[in-house]
Computed example of a mutant assay.
Amino acid sequence: MKTLKATIAVMALVLFSAFTITNEGGYKVGDIATDFKLENIDGTMVSLADYKDAKGFIVIFTCNTCPYAVAYEDRIEALNKKYASKGYPVIAIMPNNTDVKPGDSMEAMRARAKAKGFTFPYLMDAGQKIYPKYGATKTPHVYVLQKTDKGNQVKYIGAIDDNYQDANAVNKKYVENAVDALLAGKEVQETHTRAIGCTIKV
Protein backbone atom coordinates (compact mmCIF):
# COMPACT_ATOMS: atom_id res chain seq x y z
CA MET A 1 0.00 0.00 0.00
CA LYS A 2 2.84 2.36 0.87
CA THR A 3 4.47 1.54 -2.48
CA LEU A 4 1.23 2.34 -4.30
CA LYS A 5 0.89 5.67 -2.48
CA ALA A 6 4.50 6.53 -3.25
CA THR A 7 3.99 5.67 -6.92
CA ILE A 8 0.86 7.83 -7.09
CA ALA A 9 2.70 10.70 -5.39
CA VAL A 10 5.56 10.48 -7.90
CA MET A 11 3.16 10.34 -10.84
CA ALA A 12 1.28 13.37 -9.50
CA LEU A 13 4.53 15.28 -9.16
CA VAL A 14 5.55 14.44 -12.74
CA LEU A 15 2.12 15.44 -14.05
CA PHE A 16 2.20 18.67 -12.06
CA SER A 17 5.65 19.57 -13.35
CA ALA A 18 4.55 18.99 -16.93
CA PHE A 19 1.98 21.76 -16.59
CA THR A 20 3.92 24.12 -14.35
CA ILE A 21 5.68 27.01 -15.99
CA THR A 22 8.96 28.25 -14.63
CA ASN A 23 11.44 30.69 -16.11
CA GLU A 24 14.25 30.16 -13.62
CA GLY A 25 17.61 31.13 -14.99
CA GLY A 26 16.12 32.49 -18.20
CA TYR A 27 15.47 35.97 -19.46
CA LYS A 28 13.01 38.27 -17.78
CA VAL A 29 11.18 41.13 -19.46
CA GLY A 30 13.67 43.98 -19.79
CA ASP A 31 16.73 41.73 -20.13
CA ILE A 32 19.02 41.91 -23.14
CA ALA A 33 19.05 38.67 -25.12
CA THR A 34 22.40 37.52 -26.46
CA ASP A 35 22.61 36.60 -30.13
CA PHE A 36 23.03 33.08 -31.46
CA LYS A 37 24.14 31.34 -34.65
CA LEU A 38 22.04 28.28 -35.45
CA GLU A 39 21.58 26.08 -38.51
CA ASN A 40 18.54 26.75 -40.63
CA ILE A 41 16.70 24.07 -42.63
CA ASP A 42 18.43 25.34 -45.79
CA GLY A 43 21.86 24.63 -44.30
CA THR A 44 22.79 28.26 -43.66
CA MET A 45 23.75 29.59 -40.24
CA VAL A 46 21.37 32.27 -38.98
CA SER A 47 21.81 34.90 -36.29
CA LEU A 48 19.77 37.91 -35.24
CA ALA A 49 22.61 40.15 -36.38
CA ASP A 50 21.89 39.06 -39.97
CA TYR A 51 18.69 41.11 -39.88
CA LYS A 52 20.16 44.57 -40.24
CA ASP A 53 16.85 46.30 -40.94
CA ALA A 54 14.79 44.51 -38.30
CA LYS A 55 13.22 46.52 -35.49
CA GLY A 56 12.94 43.41 -33.38
CA PHE A 57 12.08 39.72 -33.49
CA ILE A 58 9.38 37.21 -32.65
CA VAL A 59 11.48 34.30 -31.40
CA ILE A 60 9.40 31.13 -31.06
CA PHE A 61 10.64 27.85 -29.63
CA THR A 62 8.58 25.21 -31.43
CA CYS A 63 8.82 21.76 -32.98
CA ASN A 64 7.22 19.18 -35.29
CA THR A 65 6.05 16.65 -32.74
CA CYS A 66 4.12 18.59 -30.12
CA PRO A 67 0.34 18.78 -30.78
CA TYR A 68 0.26 22.30 -29.33
CA ALA A 69 3.05 23.45 -31.65
CA VAL A 70 1.32 21.84 -34.63
CA ALA A 71 -1.93 23.58 -33.69
CA TYR A 72 -0.12 26.92 -33.82
CA GLU A 73 1.80 26.42 -37.09
CA ASP A 74 -0.60 28.39 -39.27
CA ARG A 75 -0.75 31.19 -36.71
CA ILE A 76 3.05 31.33 -36.53
CA GLU A 77 3.16 31.60 -40.32
CA ALA A 78 0.50 34.34 -40.17
CA LEU A 79 2.59 36.26 -37.64
CA ASN A 80 5.57 36.23 -39.97
CA LYS A 81 3.51 37.32 -42.97
CA LYS A 82 1.99 40.17 -40.98
CA TYR A 83 5.06 41.46 -39.16
CA ALA A 84 8.23 40.52 -41.08
CA SER A 85 7.68 43.37 -43.54
CA LYS A 86 7.07 45.72 -40.60
CA GLY A 87 10.41 44.84 -39.02
CA TYR A 88 9.47 41.98 -36.68
CA PRO A 89 10.23 38.67 -38.41
CA VAL A 90 9.51 35.30 -36.84
CA ILE A 91 12.59 33.27 -35.91
CA ALA A 92 11.54 29.70 -35.07
CA ILE A 93 13.89 27.49 -33.05
CA MET A 94 13.48 23.74 -32.51
CA PRO A 95 14.86 23.02 -28.99
CA ASN A 96 14.19 19.30 -28.47
CA ASN A 97 16.77 16.52 -28.11
CA THR A 98 16.36 14.65 -31.39
CA ASP A 99 17.55 11.39 -29.82
CA VAL A 100 14.44 11.56 -27.66
CA LYS A 101 12.27 13.00 -30.44
CA PRO A 102 13.49 11.70 -33.85
CA GLY A 103 10.47 13.37 -35.42
CA ASP A 104 12.19 16.70 -34.76
CA SER A 105 15.34 15.86 -36.74
CA MET A 106 16.67 18.36 -39.27
CA GLU A 107 15.36 16.15 -42.07
CA ALA A 108 11.91 16.11 -40.47
CA MET A 109 12.07 19.87 -39.92
CA ARG A 110 12.83 20.40 -43.61
CA ALA A 111 9.95 18.17 -44.63
CA ARG A 112 7.53 19.90 -42.29
CA ALA A 113 8.58 23.38 -43.40
CA LYS A 114 8.15 22.40 -47.04
CA ALA A 115 4.76 20.79 -46.46
CA LYS A 116 3.47 23.83 -44.55
CA GLY A 117 5.19 26.45 -46.71
CA PHE A 118 6.99 28.16 -43.85
CA THR A 119 8.34 31.57 -44.86
CA PHE A 120 10.38 32.03 -41.68
CA PRO A 121 13.71 30.47 -40.68
CA TYR A 122 13.35 27.20 -38.79
CA LEU A 123 16.53 26.69 -36.78
CA MET A 124 17.84 23.78 -34.74
CA ASP A 125 19.18 24.40 -31.25
CA ALA A 126 21.89 21.77 -31.66
CA GLY A 127 23.36 20.89 -28.29
CA GLN A 128 20.39 22.62 -26.62
CA LYS A 129 22.44 25.68 -25.67
CA ILE A 130 20.04 28.48 -26.56
CA TYR A 131 16.67 27.60 -25.06
CA PRO A 132 18.04 27.44 -21.46
CA LYS A 133 19.43 30.97 -21.87
CA TYR A 134 15.97 32.18 -22.77
CA GLY A 135 14.32 30.09 -20.09
CA ALA A 136 11.97 28.42 -22.55
CA THR A 137 10.11 25.46 -21.08
CA LYS A 138 7.43 24.68 -23.66
CA THR A 139 6.80 24.30 -27.36
CA PRO A 140 5.58 26.79 -28.35
CA HIS A 141 7.16 29.48 -26.14
CA VAL A 142 7.45 33.03 -27.47
CA TYR A 143 9.90 35.86 -26.81
CA VAL A 144 9.29 39.22 -28.45
CA LEU A 145 12.51 41.21 -28.69
CA GLN A 146 12.99 44.86 -29.56
CA LYS A 147 16.22 46.26 -30.97
CA THR A 148 17.66 48.97 -28.70
CA ASP A 149 20.99 50.73 -28.30
CA LYS A 150 21.84 48.14 -25.63
CA GLY A 151 20.85 45.15 -27.75
CA ASN A 152 17.77 42.99 -28.29
CA GLN A 153 15.60 43.68 -25.27
CA VAL A 154 12.96 41.19 -24.14
CA LYS A 155 9.54 42.84 -24.22
CA TYR A 156 7.16 39.91 -23.99
CA ILE A 157 7.36 36.26 -22.87
CA GLY A 158 4.69 33.58 -23.08
CA ALA A 159 1.90 32.27 -25.28
CA ILE A 160 0.90 33.33 -28.78
CA ASP A 161 -2.72 33.84 -27.79
CA ASP A 162 -5.32 32.59 -25.33
CA ASN A 163 -6.78 29.65 -27.27
CA TYR A 164 -4.51 26.93 -28.63
CA GLN A 165 -7.49 24.78 -29.61
CA ASP A 166 -9.29 27.15 -31.95
CA ALA A 167 -7.79 30.10 -33.79
CA ASN A 168 -11.29 31.41 -34.47
CA ALA A 169 -12.12 31.54 -30.76
CA VAL A 170 -9.13 33.62 -29.67
CA ASN A 171 -9.98 36.57 -27.41
CA LYS A 172 -6.49 37.86 -26.67
CA LYS A 173 -3.71 37.92 -29.25
CA TYR A 174 -0.80 38.40 -26.87
CA VAL A 175 2.01 38.47 -29.43
CA GLU A 176 0.15 40.68 -31.88
CA ASN A 177 -0.77 43.09 -29.10
CA ALA A 178 2.85 43.25 -27.97
CA VAL A 179 4.27 43.86 -31.44
CA ASP A 180 1.54 46.37 -32.34
CA ALA A 181 2.37 48.34 -29.19
CA LEU A 182 6.09 48.37 -29.98
CA LEU A 183 5.44 49.47 -33.56
CA ALA A 184 3.29 52.30 -32.22
CA GLY A 185 6.03 53.37 -29.81
CA LYS A 186 4.01 52.33 -26.79
CA GLU A 187 4.70 50.11 -23.80
CA VAL A 188 3.55 46.49 -23.96
CA GLN A 189 0.59 46.17 -21.59
CA GLU A 190 0.69 42.42 -21.00
CA THR A 191 4.36 41.46 -20.83
CA HIS A 192 4.16 37.91 -19.52
CA THR A 193 1.65 35.09 -19.98
CA ARG A 194 1.67 31.37 -19.29
CA ALA A 195 3.09 29.38 -22.20
CA ILE A 196 0.92 26.37 -23.00
CA GLY A 197 2.52 23.42 -24.74
CA CYS A 198 4.68 20.32 -24.46
CA THR A 199 7.73 20.28 -22.23
CA ILE A 200 11.03 20.65 -24.07
CA LYS A 201 12.67 17.23 -24.33
CA VAL A 202 16.24 16.98 -23.00
Rank of each mutant, 00 (worst) to 15 (best):
Q189S: 10
T20V: 11
L38P: 00
V170F: 03
Y88G: 02
T65R: 15
E39V: 08
A49Q: 14
L15R: 04
M1I: 12
D35L: 15
D162P: 06
V202E: 14
A18M: 13
D53Q: 14
L182A: 03
N64K: 04
R75E: 14
E107Y: 09
P132I: 11
T7P: 04
P95K: 02
V142K: 01
R194M: 15
A126R: 10
A115N: 15
Y134P: 07
L38F: 11
A136L: 12
A84V: 07
L38M: 02
K101S: 13
K82C: 01
I60Q: 04
D162Y: 05
V144L: 14
V14A: 13
G56P: 03
N64M: 07
A12L: 07
G30T: 05
C63F: 11
G103H: 13
D166S: 10
L183G: 05
A84F: 00
N97S: 13
L79S: 02
I91H: 03
V90Q: 00
G56Y: 02
E77D: 15
F120T: 05
L15V: 12
V14K: 09
L13H: 03
A71R: 12
T98G: 02
N40M: 05
A195M: 12
M1Y: 12
G158H: 01
I157N: 01
K116P: 02
G56S: 14
C66R: 09
I196F: 15
D166P: 11
K172Q: 14
Y131I: 06
Y143F: 13
G135Y: 11
H192R: 15
A184C: 14
P89Y: 03
D161Q: 05
K116R: 12
Q128D: 04
K5E: 11
Y27M: 10
Y83M: 06
I76Q: 02
A92M: 06
A9T: 05
K81N: 11
L182W: 01
T22C: 08
H192P: 00
V14T: 09
T98E: 07
V90P: 00
V14N: 01
K172F: 06
T199F: 06
H141W: 06
D35R: 13
F120W: 05
Y51M: 09
L15W: 07
L79W: 00
K172T: 13
I200Q: 03
T139M: 08
D104P: 04
F16N: 06
T62W: 00
G43I: 09
A6R: 14
N23H: 15
A111W: 12
K101Y: 13
I60T: 05
T199L: 12
G26P: 01
N23S: 15
Y88D: 01
V90L: 00
A159G: 06
T193F: 08
Q165A: 11
L183F: 04
N80T: 01
K155I: 08
K114D: 14
M1S: 12
A181D: 08
G103M: 12
L79N: 02
A178K: 00
G30S: 10
T199I: 10
M109N: 03
T193E: 05
A159D: 09
E107P: 02
A111H: 10
K37A: 12
V46N: 03
A69E: 02
K37Y: 02
K28A: 13
R194Q: 10
A71H: 08
Y134L: 11
M1P: 03
Y72D: 09
L38W: 02
S47T: 09
I60K: 00
F19W: 09
T193S: 07
K155F: 07
D42S: 11
I32L: 10
E187Q: 15
D53Y: 07
G87A: 07
M1W: 15
D50E: 08
V170D: 04
